[in-house]
């Protein structure tokens, strides 16, 4: 099963991953704030992930690990 994990403390909340996700299942968290003070990206519906790794490819901060 496809699985995406975010190293939330590395995230700067730029949202570039959100823009490239074909399934639109990534969003910046409205509740969480990391140590850097950013709203980190989170996955909203893991089930729909197809492990395309577009998000990880676009992420400038190597926040994302993708497994299948």
């Amino acid at each position: 099963m496809a699985k995406v994990t975010f190293d939330e403390e590395r995230c700067k909340g730029c949202g570039l991953c959100e823009t490239v996700c074909p399934k639109q299942i990534i969003a910046l968290s409205k509740e969480k704030i990391n140590l850097k003070g950013y709203h980190p990206a989170v996955i909203t519906d893991q089930e729909k992930c197809i492990a395309c790794a577009f998000c990880a490819t676009m992420c400038p901060d190597t926040v994302i690990t993708v497994e299948k």
């Binding site: 700067k12 949202g15 992420c59 190597t62």
Partner: peptide
């Protein structure tokens, strides 16, 4: 780098 700066990529 600043958030969203593609230097990181």
């Amino acid at each position: 780098y600043c958030p969203g700066c593609t230097h990181g990529v």
